[in-house]
Structures are given as structure tokens and as C-alpha cells.
């Protein structure tokens, strides 16, 4: 029974080694399109602050909150010198900023549309009153 056990142990160890290699490879994916240097995070921090202090923050508060949470993760990744994670978070944060801006733009357009519909409705009522005066 021992040799069998030894054989099994050897096979199991090899499998575990393969799994470990695969796991390691899966964790070492491409760092993303964003290139990271020492100033990247500070630029990102400034860009996030600019958006957070703009009208976008009022129009997309949830997106800004998520961005600021991810900024903290990026800060930690920078501190941990985890450049891959920092690069992914940086790319995601800029994508989120783009979405927040678009959300604010959509909100503004929705408001404009509602305002226009109100104007149209008021104009229709006023026109109807005018026509009644004509009769």
C-alpha cells in the first residue's frame, strides 16, 4: 500500500504544482493599457478631486462615491507597489469618471427635455386660451 500511497502523493504533488503555476499565471495577467509611473496616482487623485468638486458630483453621486473608494484601493496598491492592480484601478477610475460625466450630461439633457415639455405644455395651454378668446 505504501508505494501506491507514495505514487499517489507524487501525482497529487505534481497536480498541486500545476495548479499553483496556473493560479500564479492567472494572477499575473496583463497590467492593462494604463502605464504607471510615480506620478500617475497623483494625477489620478487630482483628476478625481476635480470631478468631485464639479457639478458632476451632484448629478452622479453614486458614481463619485465608487470612484473615491477605488481611489483608496489604488492608493493602497501604490503603497503596496502593486503596479498591476494600480494600473487596473486607474483605468477603471478614468472609465468611471467618463461614465459619471456622461451620466451628468444625460441628467442635464433629461432636465432640458422635461423643461422643454413643460414649455410645450404651457404653450399649448396658452394657445388654447388664445383660440378660445378668438371664438
Amino acid at each position: 500500500m505504501k508505494p501506491n500511497i507514495r505514487l499517489q502523493t507524487t501525482k497529487t504533488g505534481s497536480l498541486a504544482l500545476i495548479l499553483l503555476i496556473l493560479t500564479g499565471l492567472s494572477g499575473c495577467g496583463s497590467p492593462g493599457a494604463t502605464k504607471i509611473d510615480d506620478d500617475t496616482f497623483y494625477q489620478l487623485e487630482a483628476d478625481v478631486a476635480a470631478v468631485a468638486n464639479s457639478a458632476v458630483a451632484d448629478a452622479a453621486p453614486l458614481e463619485i462615491k465608487g470612484i473615491q473608494e477605488k481611489l483608496q484601493l489604488a492608493k493602497k496598491a501604490k503603497a503596496d507597489r502593486d503596479r498591476r492592480t494600480e494600473a487596473q484601478l486607474t483605468e477603471q477610475i478614468y472609465a468611471d469618471i467618463q461614465l459619471a460625466k456622461k451620466r451628468a450630461e444625460l441628467k442635464q439633457k433629461n432636465n432640458d427635455l422635461l423643461d422643454l415639455r413643460d414649455q410645450v405644455s404651457s404653450a399649448q395651454v396658452y394657445l388654447m386660451e388664445l383660440k378660445e378668446r378668438l371664438q
Partner: peptide, 20 residues
Amino acid sequence: KMAAESGYLDAQIAAENDSL
């Protein structure tokens, strides 16, 4: 989705502007 929504809103705004 947002770009499509934006385009849709632009069209709606244009239509409402025309109506107005």
C-alpha cells in the same frame, strides 16, 4: 447605452424644440 440614450434625448429635445 448612454451614448444611445444621449442621442435619443437629443432627438427628443430637437423634436420638442420643433414643436415649441
